[in-house]
């Protein structure tokens, strides 16, 4: 941690504390719902950031893993009556296993080939859900009547309950991902992103690390699926289409791929801003599209690109 980071530590901590008081400021349920949605997208984008931002794999199919998580929760509840929060680990596990299975044969594909295959996976998953695969997914209507989560006998029903659930989980994830980024694993991923051949040459098992990045990202997307299912109470295949993946991809690149703060900012902008401009109605997306182009022209590296890794020299060398 450098001196500049130290200087900004307390203002940032204050900002986070202030943010977590948001429900107390009399924000109406509508804006809390918006914040919850931003939180979910932030969680998903942070998990995508591992794959796209750190490992540099062009992955535009994150909605598929999100869907697997959400449907795992939905099916376990509606068919087997599991309590919602007990399905959380299983939703992550299911998404992770699914990612391992689908990614293993395609992990070696070069950039754009991987991109189109991952889009293909999202579409296959969506069509499989519409066609009521295994007779469990409820077809095009999806699953309805998923229960609210219960923590120690307390049932989460109101938007501000979910605010703390989602943002609490996002905060924990931020911390975990921060450690991951600064671990041997995170450095290996960055190495692969910068130069896969050199990484392989120095002894990094690129295939294995790429697969692990995929699986970790997918597990978190699965967790997000559980929260989504229990918050919405209804899930249907339409919510997990190609455009959801595009939105997540956009959040990561726009915010600054490889930088958690950038990704958070991206989630606020991409999900939050269109809400502010509801009055524009049908031309809202027109402006959104134009804004994306403009932002990329003026900040091609994203709003908050990651700073390079900095290490403090040991004191005896620094002198």
């Amino acid at each position: 941690m450098s001196a500049a980071a130290d200087k900004w530590f307390w203002p940032q901590a204050a900002l986070v504390a202030l943010f977590f008081c948001a429900p107390a400021f009399g924000l109406g349920p509508y804006w809390l719902e918006v914040l919850n949605q931003i939180g979910l997208y932030a969680l998903l984008a942070l998990s995508l950031n591992i794959i796209l931002g750190h490992a540099g794999m062009f992955h535009m199919g994150h909605a598929a893993f999100f869907a697997v998580g959400a449907y795992t929760t939905g099916i376990l509840y509606t068919s087997y009556g599991w309590p919602i929060l007990c399905t959380l680990p299983l939703a992550g596990l299911a998404a992770g296993i699914f990612a391992l299975l689908v990614a293993a044969p395609i992990i070696h594909l070069r950039g754009d080939y991987l991109l189109v295959v991952t889009i293909g996976i999202v579409e296959i998953v969506r069509i499989a859900l519409v066609n009521n695969i295994f007779g469990l997914t409820g077809g095009a209507n999806g699953l309805v009547g998923i229960a609210r989560p219960v923590i120690f006998g307390f049932k989460l029903t109101r938007p501000w309950h979910f605010f703390y659930l989602i943002w609490g989980f996002t905060a924990v994830s931020l911390l975990l991902f921060h450690w991951l980024e600064n671990s041997r694993f995170g450095r290996a991923l960055n190495y692969i992103r910068e130069d896969p051949v050199a990484a392989e040459g120095i002894g990094v098992n690129t295939t294995r690390y790429k697969l692990m990045a995929f699986v970790i990202g997918a597990v978190w997307a699965g967790f997000a699926g559980t929260f989504y299912a229990s918050q919405m109470r209804t899930i249907s295949p339409g919510s997990f289409n190609f455009w959801e993946s595009v939105v997540l991809f956009t959040i990561v690149i726009l915010g600054g791929s490889g930088n958690q703060k950038g990704v958070l900012l991206g989630a606020f902008l991409v999900v939050g801003l269109p809400e502010l401009f509801r009055s524009l109605q049908s031309s809202r997306l027109l402006f959104f599209g134009a804004a994306l182009v403009l932002m990329m022209i003026f900040r091609p590296q994203g709003l908050l690109p990651p700073k390079g890794r900095a290490y403090r020299l040991p004191p005896e060398v620094a002198r």
């Binding site: 991109l115 595009v246 956009t250 690149i253 791929s257 599209g289």
Partner: peptide
């Protein structure tokens, strides 16, 4: 053209933005 010198991923996002823009322009 303004993105010729920047990374490939930013060009992808710009392309997606242009796609959203055109689709909605056609709708309007």
């Amino acid at each position: 053209r303004p993105l010729r010198k920047s990374g490939r991923l930013s060009a992808v996002v710009s392309a997606l933005g242009a796609s959203i823009f055109l689709q909605n322009a056609i709708m309007l």
